[in-house]
Design a binder for these strands. Structure first.
Lengths: 155, 155
DNA sequence: ATTGCTGCAAAACGTTTGCACCTAT
DNA sequence: ATAGGTGCAAACGTTTTGCAGCAAT
């Protein structure tokens, strides 16, 4: 299931940047857009490999970087030294709450945050590129946490 | 130059947690508190090594984790897959603006952020542990950027 | 024809681990 | 005495790179 609009955006981006238009790159685009939730580059590579794709690990890493550059994919970082990505389509702008007990990532929006990054950039005479706002927290009621028992929580 | 108060806090933390009180751990504490600005675990290890310390890399990594647990050191993540630390003493709570042109890290405080993480946790029924708010931006006036010319900015 | 992209494997990077020895309790 | 920490080197997982062949322009 391909996204025609995204395909066109990516094609234009590649052309304008004098990057070659190759089938592998569009394979990565399609896989990235189809992925539910957040994924590491290697997750995507393995998924594609399991789906019999012949695209190499290096190409997956390179192409994700291109997709970030043209805003089709957003780069995330949840403090565990793994670069994660998510499709920028379908969803509105949001931030993340990471549960330190179960690893769940809850997406939230808060109107108070919306203009803050731009305001702060103006105050400091910088031009905003992007921002990240991550909250690290714990399930208040462990009983309701679907993942809690699956991990070693003996600490 | 040792910080007596921090030493005492760390000693108490180690004792309460039934961790051994070793000279190596206090060496790491002192080096971490003396470090100006943000540092990676390996940066600290290399600095200590250059200063003729015999503390091993593993001990530096382990001890920094302990220092984070007792809030003497704060763990940071600026989106480049390197875990960074900074002393939690001397400075007030602050967030970070990272310049994508020159790599400078500007610390700022903004009162609108202060209560936001706790509010959002309450809304979602989580217990706040910590948060990170990073803004990625570019020097508006490249001429005034002290680092701009030292990097390859040909892009 | 040229230049950039690909796949592959190997290297690099920050970090963690296994193990034998040592040391604080 | 013994649980736990240390130094060292090797392993680890993620990401990047070098290179020969290939394909888009």
């Amino acid at each position: 299931m391909k996204n025609q609009k995204a395909t066109e955006i990516f094609r234009k981006f590649l052309k304008d940047g004098k990057n070659r238009i190759t089938p592998e790159r569009f394979e990565v685009l399609d896989a990235a857009l189809e992925y539910e939730g957040h994924f590491g580059a290697d997750d995507l590579f393995i998924l594609m490999k399991n789906n019999k794709s012949r695209v190499s690990r290096a190409t997956v890493y390179n192409t994700l970087e291109l997709l970030v550059q043209c805003d089709l994919v957003i780069k995330r970082n949840f403090g565990d030294n793994i670069t994660r990505y998510e499709s920028s389509l379908k969803k509105q702008v949001h931030d993340h709450l990471i549960c330190m007990d179960c690893g769940r990532i809850i997406e939230f929006t808060n109107s108070k945050i919306t203009n803050l990054p731009a305001e702060i950039c103006n105050e400091n005479n910088f031009k905003l590129e992007s921002y990240s706002f991550n909250i690290f927290a714990r399930c208040k009621n462990i009983k309701t946490c679907p993942y809690y028992l699956t991990k070693d929580n003996s600490e």
